[in-house]
Design a protein around this nucleic acid. Structure first.
Lengths: 210, 210
DNA sequence: ACTAAATGTAAACGTTTGCTGACTTAGCCA
DNA sequence: TGGCTAAGTCAGCAAACGTTTACATTTAGT
């Protein structure tokens, strides 16, 4: 069910309203999306209840059904958002800056921000459509990563390169989860600066720059 | 609650009984443990129901409470078993064979076997005691891995080496999950032989052999 | 063979879950 | 101001969950 969300027909799609309205569908939707992303990423899909999310967002539970049809719909929206965010990063990163970009993603860039987008990608809801979305995001990301290191689709030996790109992606996601969800020390309190060196070694070893 | 399991006082602790008993507490316990490990590893803690596990094991639901006190207790038992298994592998692996050992773990070594032990390590139940067990397993494994590459506890710069070992472990776990749970292709159908090369590059890059 | 303990079964319990329908309130334009 | 619609609230349902209780069957010792 790919329900279109009933976004309110507010004229101004760009720019903040000068003073916040007490009722603003777009803002409420975003509040739910943010709260859900963090909960899903940290606790997983099944362990997260819609009441948890609504409370975090400071919003009534019933609005989840209104804006996202169901808990599943909200989860899929989170995956799509994570895919957009990730694609925006990997898409415009020059080949030799990929490790830095991953490190920045993992390290957080502002408290509990982008790091949870990565961790979200290995949370599963059991729903087939959500799985398709996630697989799509992962395939696209690994192909972009592989392409930055010389991979061209269809070439005979290129499967090896794609495999290696997926392993690099898996490494990044694994680190993100061990940091944010499992809280393994010293990995958990390592800074972006601490991570970028080892990550560069890791990515360069899997996908030698050419 | 670290409930001791009421193991039956069968005299023969070693060797299989010649003909299988129709009721055997030790065997039932093991059936539950195996079924639970696979479910927990693939679907996560919250998404797995005790009825699922009992059905997989071909056993009555109430026996989970009998042998493991609770679903939590069963999960903790799975973590302990995974820790033992992993420790047995990493403990007796010479330094230069570590990547091969990881690859063998990931690749499965017999259908859905050891691979799920690795994936289990990033499943969380939210319970504090289970978190402690998992953290212990991860810390011990990463220390063994780091020690195999020259790390000595307490040395000033050794924190860097431990961090890198944890990242290597995170990479292995990430690959295991992307393979077994997310089923990302071509990573998912890669053989042990396909994996060992990239894994060797990865581990050697993070922890240079000395 | 008899008995007591060990093992397994069936049904139900109270709670929590995602979701819904009827209702109330705020925003906006005539 | 009055009224209409979008936005948010509230109470509660049915299903699924982990666990328990009372009962049945098997095993082992004598």
């Amino acid at each position: 069910m790919t329900a279109e969300t009933p976004v309110p027909a507010t004229g101004d799609t760009a720019g903040e309203p000068a003073h916040r309205r007490r009722r603003d569908a777009a803002e409420t939707r975003q509040l739910l999306l943010d709260a859900a992303r963090q909960r899903f990423a940290r606790d997983g899909y099944a362990a997260t209840t819609v009441r948890d999310i609504a409370d975090d967002a400071g919003v009534n539970v019933a609005l989840i059904s209104r804006y996202f049809t169901s808990k599943e719909g909200l989860f899929e929206a989170c995956l799509r958002a994570a895919g957009d965010e990730l694609g925006r990063t990997t898409g415009q990163t020059p080949a030799d800056r990929v490790p830095e970009a991953i490190a920045r993603h993992i390290a957080g860039l502002g408290a509990a921000g982008l790091s949870s987008q990565l961790a979200l990608l290995l949370r599963s809801s059991g729903d087939a459509e959500a799985d398709d979305i996630r697989r799509g995001v992962l395939v696209r990301s690994s192909e972009q990563l592989a392409a930055a290191r010389g991979w061209r689709p269809g070439e005979p030996d290129s499967q090896q390169l794609l495999l290696r790109a997926q392993m690099a992606l898996a490494a990044g996601i694994g680190v993100a989860v061990l940091r944010s969800s499992i809280r393994l020390e010293p990995l958990s309190s390592a800074t972006e600066h601490d991570l970028v060196g080892p990550l560069r070694d890791l990515v360069d070893a899997l996908l030698p720059p050419h």
